[in-house]
Design a protein around this nucleic acid. Structure first.
Lengths: 340, 340
DNA sequence: CTGAAAGCGCTTACAG
DNA sequence: CTGAAAGCGCTTACAG
């Protein structure tokens, strides 16, 4: 049988209001009353019904985090950070994999799970600007990852172009000349992949090798296998890269696997830089140099932005959309060992 | 402004019951009425308030999945499988990292988030039998991973001893003689790590090397760094292993990193077997041989078990606790290349 | 096939 | 400091 506030109140000989006060730790309850009520609560094993509280308060304390997938350690690590940080602020996180599919992203963007979640952090892949505009203005939405949307939402993203430039320049500074890029998905042009490609192109176009497509391997996805195949195509094409900047670390890990299979050494024959700084990168046969977005800062900025819309002062809630740019760092490891 | 059923009913000129019927797709509504109501719903942008539904139905359609952490790809992959499988059955999954801490595990086991979740799948690390018994019988609980609990709960776990025997025997079949084990945590004796150690010991004790502690590196945790350090200690101790069976794949990846740093080749100098079959294992410099628990089967068995307690026929709900043992397979890759 | 009404278990003005 | 009562927005017997 389920125990309600009323049961506790009856047994303790007080009103439900008083029990509620005790449960919620409000002052203005005499110690004697508090103790008596608490004892009955323990005796009966009463637990507040969260769904009733949610209905009454119009809030659930639940926020959703919609990410492409957990199979990519970057997202898994980010999810971990968001969940733990939010928990410290008494918010529960509902994790929803979108599988990078537009229909799923639209679902979330447009107010799926109405009133079950107070707000949403969404890391879109395929979502378009128009999908966002069609949104039946519901719970606050924070966008994660650099996309160029015009919709009025808070946005958390590092500067992908600058990061890509940093990575590419690092490879050039090593004395490499034919620096390739793996990972620009075909199609939509506003995705982070294209921003990273743009950064690469900006730097490479000023070199002898140029920023042409011969040194670019476009992939369909962003997984290990995509990296392995992209590297293989690059090698087969005769592009003869002596370095490669990969869209992310798992793509880089896939690429390094292909290099190993072809008997090429990292970094002697081909230097490699990834992106994300996932833990695996520190345990590869050649540990992986990478761009490290400040993951914790991203997680905190996203949650803070959302909660300021939820719990902030009125002027904070109504403030213009903010664009937060957490920092990044180049972390140098064995895969780019060399002179500088 | 928030639109309620009542608003829709008023505007459509019907009762709330009828709107509810339309929203929930019940038959017994004339097509004309249905259409009219649907139109008003679209016009007003009405979305059912899930929290009200939850309170009324006494059910939320949410189940919790409490795992140690998402940083280990095995758990991330498993979480993905559970979330997707549950979604197909119209259940939402709330993911809760316990960080492998007993206090957190107790929290969940004992009915945290009462009535917000319909049931719980818990993968315990430190939880003790007594913690489970103290449980104020709340939502159904399914245990994941092989622990020897006496409490009456459904339990999903592969046969760890058999799997460990398979892995160890595989290394012996290769002609290796000094097969080490990395990963048995000190302390509690009922954890999977000890079952895997037991499997290793059973097989090794019949060999010349024996199943003694000289070939065992105990670790505090189950991460990459634990594997790296465990391998280093094994090497420094003079145990001179020519093969190693690791508690899991990330431990194995850490161990392989140490081997590379010491200039030892895999598998020529030291053959390696992991456990979990995480995707990373297919992209190591020597791809990793591993025990592959049937992850999808585990996810499905866990969800099915829980839902049968929730939605099953009466005799199913009351059935004695079930112990489901999904299968496993040895997946052979480069890290144990060799004769057989 | 549709309506009027009760009630899920809380919290919160409103009184006292 | 405490109580009696309304109401959050649904669903569901109960009537008709």
């Amino acid at each position: 049988m389920v125990i309600s506030l009323k049961d506790v109140a009856k047994r303790a000989g007080v009103s439900v209001k008083t029990v509620s006060n005790v449960v919620n730790g409000y002052r203005h309850v005499t110690p004697a009353t508090r103790q008596r009520v608490q004892q009955v609560i323990d005796e009966l094993g009463y637990r507040p019904n969260l769904t009733a509280r949610h209905l009454r308060k119009g809030r659930t304390g639940i926020i959703a985090l919609a990410l492409p997938e957990l199979g990519n350690p970057y997202f898994a690590e980010l999810a971990n950070a968001v969940i733990n940080y939010a928990a410290g602020l008494d918010y529960i996180v509902l994790l929803d994999p979108t599988n990078g599919r537009r229909d799923q992203e639209i679902l979330f963007a447009q107010g799926f799970r109405a009133r079950l979640i107070d707000g949403l952090i969404l890391s879109p892949i395929e979502l378009e600007n128009e999908d966002l505009l069609a949104r039946g203005h519901d719970a606050p939405l924070v966008l994660l990852g650099e996309r160029e949307y015009e919709a009025p939402h808070d946005h958390i993203a590092i500067d992908n172009v600058a990061a890509a430039r940093t990575a590419t320049q690092h490879l050039l500074d090593l004395g490499r000349e034919r620096v390739a890029f793996i990972g620009a998905r075909q199609g939509r042009s506003r995705q982070p992949a294209h921003l990273r490609l743009r950064g690469w192109r900006e730097v490479m176009s000023e070199t002898a090798a140029g920023g042409g497509d011969d040194l670019v391997a476009t992939t369909d996805g962003y997984g290990r296998e995509d990296g392995a195949q992209g590297m293989a195509r690059l090698l087969d094409s005769g592009a003869a890269p002596d370095a490669v900047f990969c869209y992310n670390d798992v793509v880089a890990i896939g690429a390094m696997r292909t290099l190993a299979e072809r008997g090429l050494r990292v970094p002697e024959d081909v230097a490699v830089v990834g992106f994300d700084n996932i833990e695996d990168g520190r345990y590869c046969s050649a540990t992986l140099t990478t761009i490290a977005p400040h993951k914790q800062a991203i997680a905190e900025a996203a949650v803070d932005a959302l909660l300021s819309r939820l719990d902030g002062a009125e002027e904070e809630k109504e403030a213009a959309p903010r664009h937060v740019r957490p920092g990044f760092a180049l972390i140098r490891r064995e895969s780019t060992l060399g002179r500088p």
